[in-house]
Design a protein around this nucleic acid. Structure first.
Lengths: 397, 397
DNA sequence: GTGAAAGCGCTAACAG
DNA sequence: CTGTTAGCGCTTTCAC
């Protein structure tokens, strides 16, 4: 109380909320110099413990918050990271994918004392956005959730000095990225359907200009060719990740009598289920369905969806952590992180075992391969692991 | 060093991305002073047109981006707004509500040259978050999507000098806000069901500690009492905005034989539909269902959902615009904006008209009233309008 | 261990 | 209309 009065006197009885305090104020109140306060705040070891305590006390009392703009200006680092989601895909906000990703990113940022700046980059603003992100000095690094094959944002970022990481891979550029092995995952899903005796396996792909769609389609193709099955064009329909798109695609597929369908995400799989129901086809008896993502609603469809789980939220967190590491270690080598997926078996595919209890030929996994990049990478998690997010380092080739 | 770089630039030999340029560089290159460049960038009218062109040219050539941290520091304004979503509700990311809101906010920010900082405030981090937001000098203002009755973030914001606007209203504090009239909307929905002859109208509410849930419940109550119907406790079930929650709530309701149910959001309504289907009850023949929000999937449920539309995305945009206005005009009076809702009639409620073609007693709207605040407010949009987002000013009382 | 001093890149009076 | 001059609040050498 007495202390408070003293503070007010020194501060000229200024209400705290009226005007933010500065380092200088803290310095004055604790009888040290501005530099020392700065050192305390930045956990510099060159401060006598006694001094540190004194300063911390004042900071606490006064609830001091350093001005981040000033800090950013002086230090060249803001502890803000940018999250860029191209709007061409952000439209798909009925898909829980982006929300989950955002949650993962936000959570990790909180945990690591960073803030997140969100850009839903609409096409018209894209060029401006790119520049803003690159050189406005506000973000230390950027996470780009790019699904487009040839995203100009990625190219610009690549050519700049801005640290960034891609969620998803890039077909040509050797950038830092974090992805699931979509090819492998889709292949496994397809193989699973074949193992259950399905003969006419269709697929509903994502938009063809997106890399994840491409990879999942390639996995489907490989899965078929693993058993020397041909790819029948009439059993391939392009969707747009939405439920409506999945529905429409399925309607196009039905006349060609598929007995199974692999949808490139859960939302489209749900749409496919509607179409099948409408066509009086039973799932899984007449047509088996497998999705991708294992989004929260996958277990609530009719029937519950067998799907390839990817840990979306964790991927967001991991992207943050990796990005911070990249920022902290400029010039370090490219990070290539592949996150494990896991086939979650429910009833839509016609297997009644409620858990994938191994024991079958899933023990012979297809070979891990990043389709266009034959670079060494980190594998994060493993389908066989209990915990899908234990980091594991793979020896550099 | 810098001089050398500039020479290189003039010679066109240097990759532009190597080192961010400053106002000073632009000034030197265009033969004016730094202040003039600053004036050009900030569209100050006090610049000769010729000079302006010259400077703009250089800026273009060089693709110059002013450093926002520096600008923020000097000008006391960053053109960044914060969007705060309490995580207690962010969990509900399967509900398209927040994604849509974020899209609206982001879009408007892009359009108005602002950036958005996203905070999904997790409980553990809340206190830190509040302080960070308040005094780190990084945001000019804050949009809070608060649904909790007594959100500490709102209180802190209210006590500070930080400009902010609430999406949703506040039960006690006279803060800037933007909301739909949930009471009126829910009342209208309930009345609609009664008009269709339903006698045992149930409701699935949101969590009771949230203001929107409360208001919609009040509207339901008023709707019943408009026709002197009692509120039967066994016909009221609390949900949590999720599909699973709606499902569970409906299962609790079914034994009490409701012939209609008003769900406080579409997602819970969808859950209710599942429960009804499972119980072999026909919608709308046995039980009519009305939702709230008109989220993208409302038209894709089985049967398509009658629902009270609120223009979520537009509300996000409007919040941004209002906030910017608040920032630009400090000390102006409290903004109270109420956005119109509209009953979208589909088949889940048992009316076959595909459009609400007026003509009926909907022309007698219930009285507009903000439950706890009897303050003058702006009404935005009107159920009768074609365009729900035309701003209209209501005379101050 | 601590303080003094020099900026980070920009805006904003204030002169002219 | 334009340039000069002070800072904004912080970090960071560099002395002591």
């Amino acid at each position: 109380m007495l202390k408070k009065i003293v503070e007010w006197l020194i501060l000229g009885a200024l209400p705290r909320t009226l005007m933010p305090l500065t380092l200088e104020d803290i310095a004055r109140l604790s009888g040290v110099s501005r530099s020392t306060v700065s050192r305390v705040i930045n956990a510099d070891s060159n401060v006598k413990d006694e001094t540190r305590q004194k300063v911390l006390q004042v900071i606490q009392n006064i609830n001091f918050q350093p001005n981040l703009a000033a800090r950013g200006l002086a230090a060249g680092r803001t502890n803000i990271i940018g999250l860029v989601i191209p709007a061409s895909v952000a439209v798909i906000f009925t898909d829980p994918y982006f929300p989950l990703l955002i949650q993962g990113v936000s959570g990790a940022c909180n945990a690591h004392n960073h803030s997140v700046m969100l850009w839903l980059a609409e096409p018209e603003y894209e060029r401006r956005t790119i520049r803003q992100i690159l050189h406005n000095g506000l973000v230390d690094g950027v996470i780009v959730s790019s699904t487009l094959m040839d995203d100009p944002i990625v190219k610009s970022l690549y050519e700049s000095k801005m640290p960034f990481i891609l969620i998803g891979r890039h077909p040509t550029l050797d950038v830092n990225y974090l992805d699931v092995d979509n090819v492998r995952a889709a292949r496994e899903a397809t193989q699973h359907l074949m193992r259950l005796g399905r003969k006419r396996i269709a697929t509903i792909t994502g938009p063809k200009n997106q890399i994840a769609s491409y990879d999942r389609y390639q996995g489907y193709v490989k899965g078929l060719s693993d058993r020397n099955q041909p790819v029948l064009p009439e059993l391939v329909a392009e969707g747009d990740w939405t439920e409506a798109g999945g529905y429409t695609a399925m309607r196009r597929l039905i006349p060609h009598k598929p007995d199974a369908v692999f949808a490139a995400n859960d939302v489209m799989a749900a749409g496919a289920l509607s179409a099948l129901r409408e066509a009086q086809l039973r799932v899984p008896e007449d047509v088996a369905v497998v999705g991708f993502d294992d989004t929260p609603n996958a277990s609530r469809t009719q029937p519950p969806l067998t799907t390839m789980r990817q840990p979306i939220q964790s991927m967001g967190s991991l992207a943050v952590e990796t990005l911070i590491d990249i920022i902290d270690h400029p010039g370090s080598e490219t990070r290539r992180i592949v996150v494990a997926t896991e086939l979650v078996i429910r009833s839509s595919c016609g297997t009644l075992k409620s858990k994938s209890e191994g024991g079958d030929d899933r023990k012979n996994p297809v070979d891990l391969s990043i389709p266009t990049l034959n670079q060494p990478y980190h594998l994060v998690g493993n389908p066989a692991d209990e915990n899908p997010i234990l980091r594991r380092r793979v020896k550099n080739a």
